[in-house]
Design a protein around this nucleic acid. Structure first.
Length: 271
DNA sequence: GCGACAG
DNA sequence: ATCTTGTCGC
């Protein structure tokens, strides 16, 4: 995959004010509603490839369903080695790993809440440049619309590559949950997250994402925290949550993200 | 000055 | 994100 909107490529040498201005432009360009070709309901973990192998791009009936038209869902995640970022991308069709690539780029600036894409963006775009597949949607680790200027990492990547993206974060950056997230939520539950004064580009009360419970302990005092899911680009808040729920394979993280996370760690170990 | 903040 | 053993609870 290649960059479509080169003016949005994150430049780490920009000043903070310039980075924020770029984010406002990105937010103005982003589409926070469904505007894609694939059918969200067709995204599941069903089908062949129980043992998730590589290189079998749905050759002549390699199982039962073999619907080679199932949507391709990619997950991208980063790991760090000193001041270098390893970005890994894993593409799935159902449970089958269709392709995976990675790239290593220097992390030019430190982590600053709100400016994450300027630290990890280069590595992510380099990894996608190595990707032959054309994923229907990409899960990005971090926020999308749930961001001070509605331009989190998922939105930045989505608009730059002009690909549908979903932000999958483990923690809430900003915004207000419609109900407390402190209590134990059952698997499948979702809590709307609205824009508040911290989100300067949206009216307070605007739906910007959801807390999604992909996994929970049944009988125990222990509880798993929900994921924070938001639209990146060309996906609505509801669809974003649906896609994450549909690809939860028994773990907290949806499979595309979990496998990308694992792959990034494996690559890191070989460095 | 204090709070609050993805990865 | 990363540094890190054992340990308690699914």
């Amino acid at each position: 995959m290649e960059v479509v909107n080169s003016t949005f490529v994150p430049d780490p040498s920009l000043s903070t004010a310039e980075m924020e201005d770029l984010q406002r432009e990105i937010a103005a360009t982003a589409v926070f509603e469904d505007d894609h070709d694939f059918d969200p309901d067709a995204v599941t973990l069903d089908g062949p490839a129980e043992q998730a192998t590589l290189g079998e791009l749905g050759a002549a009936g390699d199982g039962e369903d073999a619907p080679a038209d199932r949507p391709l869902v990619a997950g991208v995640d980063q790991a760090f080695v000193g001041d270098r970022a390893v970005s890994a991308v894993v593409v799935l069709r159902g449970r089958e790993v269709v392709e995976r690539v990675y790239a290593v780029e220097p992390a030019e600036i430190p982590y600053v809440p709100g400016l994450l894409s300027f630290r990890e963006g280069s590595a992510i775009l380099s990894a996608f440049a190595e990707l032959d597949s054309d994923p229907d949607v990409v899960f990005v680790d971090g926020s999308g619309r749930i961001h001070y200027r509605e331009a989190g990492l998922a939105t930045h990547v989505g608009v730059t590559l002009d690909v549908p993206t979903v932000g999958v974060a483990k923690n809430l950056l900003c915004g207000t949950p419609r109900e407390s997230l402190d209590r134990k939520l059952p698997t499948g539950a979702r809590v709307p997250i609205e824009a508040d004064a911290e989100v300067e580009t949206a009216a307070a009360g605007t739906l910007i994402g959801h807390a999604v419970q992909t996994r929970q302990y049944e009988s125990s005092k222990q509880h798993v925290n929900p994921l924070i899911v938001s639209p990146g680009h060309r996906v609505s808040a509801e669809t974003a949550a649906d896609l994450v729920s549909a690809t939860a394979g028994g773990y907290k993280l949806p499979e595309p993200t979990r496998l990308a996370d694992k792959y990034a760690d494996d690559v890191k170990a070989e460095i």
